[in-house]
Amino acid sequence: MAKVSMTVNGTSVSREVEGQTLLVSMLREDLRLTGTHVGCDTSQCGACVVHVNGKAVKSCTMFAVEADGAEVSTIEGQANADGTLSTIQQAFQEHHGLQCGFCTPGMVMSAAALLKDNPTPTEGEVRAYLDGNICRCTGYHNIVKAIMAASGQDVSAIAAE
């Protein structure tokens, strides 16, 4: 067992974990932050994306001990302080960018990382960036649209509703 300390969504936490404990397991099982999901076992689906020191990371592919001392943010920390949705979250709701909701936390976290580095991405850039996030419900149309809308671009020509 090793002691791991980190800041998660602005709160300092400390836990004793085993060496092989994945960051996603620590988040879900120890901290009970169950918004971060596990959708595969090969680091492909992206349902587990969180930010570690500001970078998008698949938390199923990182040991908890590797995040010792890091600043971690998860989907639970994305809304505004008063509980209202962030710009990206709002855009996902406004443009129906989610259906079953399972891939959604990873999509939102990836979108946030993309827009930080590339504030007005093209459609092609959004699609390419989402290569590591799989959604089975939406056919991606409304996810791509929502991310472009969140970046402040006019998406009204993309499709109805």
């Binding site: 918004g35 999901h37 809304a79 709701q93 129906h96 909701g101 399972f102 936390p105």
Partner: peptide, 23 residues
């Protein structure tokens, strides 16, 4: 009406409750 979905709030904020989330 193209009403926006009320279920979205919990899914977008990580408050969905899927079976594996239950402990």
């Amino acid at each position: 009406a193209p009403t926006r979905r009320r279920e979205d709030y919990r899914f977008l904020t990580g408050r969905g409750r899927y079976s594996d989330d239950i402990k």
